[in-house]
C-alpha cells in the first residue's frame, strides 16, 4: 500500500501563494506542517530514502538560484544547447536502478512553486543563445505528477512561440497536450518483466505504447528511450520479443530518434544504494571503469540491441 502525501510540508514564506493553496486544497486529509526552509526537512542525515519511498511526503518550496544547468556532455553528443532544470526533486516512481537513491538523503518530493523565477532565468539564457533544448524531467518524471501539479503544462505554455525545445521524458501516460511543435516527448520503455520487477508504480508497457500512439496521432514525433537496458539472465530472449513488439505496434517512421544505453552508475551511488535497497540489480557481476559501474560485457549487449533497432536516428548514451 502506498501512503503518499499524508504529510505536506510548506515553507512559511509561500503559505499565501495561490498555487500552494490550490495544491493543499487537493489533499484535505493531509497533515500540513510549516517549515522555514525545505532543506530543514529534506537534508537531515537521519532519514531513510528507502523507507520514505512508500509513504512519500510532499514538500512545497521556493527554489533559490541557480534555476537552470548546462549538460555539457549532452551538448557535445547532441549538438544542441542542452540545458536542464529541476522543477521538482525526486519522483513518485520507484525504479530500482534510479540514481536519485544514491544522491539524496530523502525520497520526499520537493516541488518548487516559484515558476516565474525559473521562467525569467530561462528567458535570459535563451535570449543570449537564440535557441535552447531544455529538459524539465532530467532527474525526475515530471509528467508522472502532471494530473496533480500541472507543472509541464505551465512550461509548455511558457515555451510557446519561442525557439526552445522542451523535452518531457517520461514513463507515464499523462500526455494530454495539444500539438505544439516544440514539445519533445521522450518515452522510456522497458520489457514488461523489467517494469514489473524494477519500475515500481510505473504504467505497464501496453499503456505506454498506447500513449505513444496517441501523441503520434496528434502530430508529435516522439523519442523512444531504451535506457537502462537491464541484462536479465534471459536478456536476449526478453529484449528480442520486447523490441519486436514495440516496433510492430509503433511505426518507426513516426519517431524522432531512439536513445539507448545499458545500466551504468557512478560507483559511489551504486554502493550507497546497494546498502539500502534489496534488488538483484545490484548483485550482477559488474566491472568498474573510471568510477562507473557497468556490465562486464557491455559491448556485446549493445551490439545485440543495435541489431534489433530499426533504421532511425540512434543516440547511444
Amino acid at each position: 500500500m502506498n501512503l503518499r502525501f499524508r504529510h505536506i510540508y510548506v515553507e512559511k514564506r509561500i503559505l499565501n501563494n495561490e498555487y500552494v493553496k490550490n495544491i493543499l486544497a487537493k489533499f484535505p486529509k493531509a497533515e500540513i506542517i510549516e517549515i522555514n526552509h525545505y532543506k530543514d526537512r529534506f537534508n537531515p542525515y537521519y532519514q531513510s530514502f528507502r523507507a520514505q519511498k512508500d509513504a512519500q511526503s510532499l514538500i512545497l518550496a521556493k527554489k533559490d538560484p541557480p534555476f537552470i544547468y548546462e549538460a555539457s556532455e549532452l551538448i557535445q553528443k547532441l549538438g544542441v544547447n542542452f540545458f536542464y532544470t529541476t522543477p521538482m526533486l525526486n519522483c513518485i516512481y520507484d525504479c530500482h536502478y534510479c540514481f536519485l537513491q544514491g544522491m539524496y538523503p530523502s525520497s520526499n518530493l520537493v516541488l518548487f512553486v516559484n515558476f516565474n523565477d525559473f521562467f525569467k532565468e530561462v528567458e535570459r539564457v535563451y535570449e543570449n543563445l537564440g535557441n535552447l533544448f531544455l529538459s524539465i524531467s532530467y532527474d525526475t518524471d515530471i509528467l508522472a505528477v502532471e494530473n496533480l501539479f500541472g507543472v509541464a503544462k505551465k512550461w509548455a505554455d511558457f515555451v510557446k512561440d519561442k525557439n526552445i525545445k522542451l523535452e518531457l521524458r517520461t514513463k507515464s501516460v499523462n500526455i494530454d497536450f495539444e500539438y505544439q511543435e516544440n514539445l519533445v516527448f521522450a518515452f522510456s520503455l522497458s520489457p514488461e518483466t523489467v517494469i514489473e520487477r524494477y519500475e515500481k508504480y510505473t504504467p505497464k508497457l501496453k499503456a505506454r505504447i498506447k500513449a505513444i500512439k496517441k501523441v503520434i496521432n496528434k502530430g508529435f514525433k516522439p523519442v523512444i528511450v531504451f535506457d537502462p537496458i537491464i541484462k536479465l539472465p534471459n536478456f536476449k530472449e526478453v529484449y528480442k520479443d520486447f523490441l519486436q513488439k514495440v516496433f510492430s505496434e509503433i511505426n518507426y517512421k513516426n519517431i524522432e530518434s531512439i536513445v539507448y544505453g545499458t545500466f551504468r552508475m557512478n560507483s559511489t551511488q551504486f554502493k550507497i544504494i546497494k546498502k539500502q535497497l534489496l534488488s538483484d540489480i545490484y548483485y550482477y557481476p559488474y566491472s568498474v571503469k573510471n568510477g562507473i559501474v557497468e556490465y562486464e560485457d557491455k559491448e556485446e549487449v549493445i551490439k545485440f540491441i543495435e541489431n534489433l533497432l530499426p533504421d532511425v536516428k540512434k543516440i547511444f548514451v
Binding site: L3, H7, D40, P44, A51, D54
Partner: peptide, 10 residues
C-alpha cells in the same frame, strides 16, 4: 521547528 520524526505508517 527543526526536528522531524518520520511517520511512515498509518
Amino acid at each position: 521547528n527543526k526536528f522531524f520524526p518520520d511517520i511512515l505508517i498509518s
